[in-house]
Computed example of a mutant assay.
Amino acid sequence: MSLSNDASTPSSSDRRVVLVAPDKFRGSLSAPEVVEAATAGARAAGWDVIGLPMADGGEGMLDAFGGANRTSSVTGPTGQPVQARWRLGEDGVAVIESAAASGLVLAGGKEGNDPVGATSAGTGELIAQAALAGARRIIVGLGGSAMSDGGRGAVEATLAGLDGRRPADLGAELLAACDVQTPFVEAAQVFGPQKGATSEQVVELTGRLFALQGEYVERFGVDVSLTSGAGAAGGLGGGLLVLGGELVPGLRLVAEQVGLEEAVGRADAIVTGEGALDAESFNGKVVGGVVDAAEPEGLPVVVVTGVVRDDAPATRLAGLRVVDLSATYGAAASWNDTAACIQRAVTEQLSTL
Rank of each mutant, 00 (worst) to 15 (best):
S199V: 12
P53Y: 08
A187S: 07
R43Y: 01
E156K: 08
S11N: 10
A128L: 10
T182F: 02
R321N: 14
G235N: 08
G46H: 12
G108Y: 12
E295L: 04
V271P: 15
S199P: 15
R344F: 02
V271A: 07
E261T: 04
A121H: 03
G319S: 06
L277S: 01
L277W: 09
L353A: 07
Q213F: 00
G244Y: 08
L277K: 05
V180R: 08
V20S: 01
T119K: 11
A188D: 10
L277P: 02
Q343P: 09
D23T: 10
A40N: 10
T75K: 12
N69E: 13
E97G: 06
A269W: 01
Q83N: 07
G92R: 05
A38H: 02
D23S: 15
L325G: 13
E97A: 11
E274G: 06
G192H: 08
L353Y: 02
G259W: 13
Q194A: 03
A121F: 09
V202F: 08
E280Y: 00
A64G: 01
L88N: 03
S102G: 08
A327N: 03
V222S: 10
E297P: 01
A333C: 00
S120P: 00
T198D: 08
V264W: 07
L353I: 03
I127N: 07
V302G: 04
V217Y: 12
V301R: 05
A340E: 11
G298T: 00
S8I: 10
L175H: 04
A187G: 13
G57N: 07
V287M: 08
G46T: 11
D114A: 06
V304F: 02
A7I: 01
E204C: 07
V93I: 15
G289A: 01
E111A: 09
G192C: 09
G161M: 00
D268Q: 15
A276F: 00
N283K: 14
V49P: 15
G289I: 05
P249C: 09
R321S: 13
E261R: 11
G89P: 14
T227I: 03
Q129M: 15
E156V: 00
A131C: 10
L277C: 07
L260F: 05
V140K: 03
D337L: 05
V242R: 13
V105L: 12
A160K: 05
